[in-house]
């Protein structure tokens, strides 16, 4: 995965200089590759509680045409299912509230805080 210009490049730090490189797009701009979503989330401290603090009423979701939660959730916790419902996770949740705020169907997403001491812990917020 360590092609030149990868943000994960790990060479050349010995003399204080950092690796130079990067993909060059047709316009000549440097482009930095992203990292996988799993890798992105791996650095975050989640203390998963026993109780799901989000619940989704999939019956309501079947009639939803916008499904804003699926793309807007920064933790990517919502996945559409083939039968038109929404599959949700709660474990790696930032507890931001985006999902219920963008949800246009009253009562589809029930959102509370995780139990005390559980959930996300930001070290560098």
């Amino acid at each position: 995965m360590s092609e030149p210009g990868s943000v994960n490049e790990t060479t050349g730090a010995a003399d204080g200089s950092l690796p130079l490189g990067g993909d060059t797009t047709p316009t000549g701009a440097l482009r930095w590759r992203g990292i996988s979503f799993e890798e992105r989330m791996a650095g975050v401290d989640f203390r998963v509680g026993a109780r799901a603090h989000i619940t989704v009423d999939s019956d309501v979701c079947r009639s939803c045409t916008t499904r804003g939660c699926v793309t807007a959730c920064p933790a990517n916790l919502f996945a559409p299912t083939s039968d038109g419902g929404i599959l949700f996770n709660y474990e790696e949740c930032f507890e931001c509230g985006t999902c219920y705020m963008v949800c246009n169907s009253e009562g589809a997403i029930t959102w509370t805080y995780p139990d005390g001491g559980h959930g996300v812990v930001f070290h560098h917020g």
């Binding site: 994960n8 790990t10 730090a13 401290d45 812990v121 070290h123």
Partner: peptide
């Protein structure tokens, strides 16, 4: 510290106590 941070460049492990 259940969530120590590893410096990918140096391999140094930091335990700041937050985890």
């Amino acid at each position: 510290d259940l969530h120590p941070e590893v410096d990918l460049l140096t391999g140094a492990v930091t335990r700041d106590g937050l985890g």
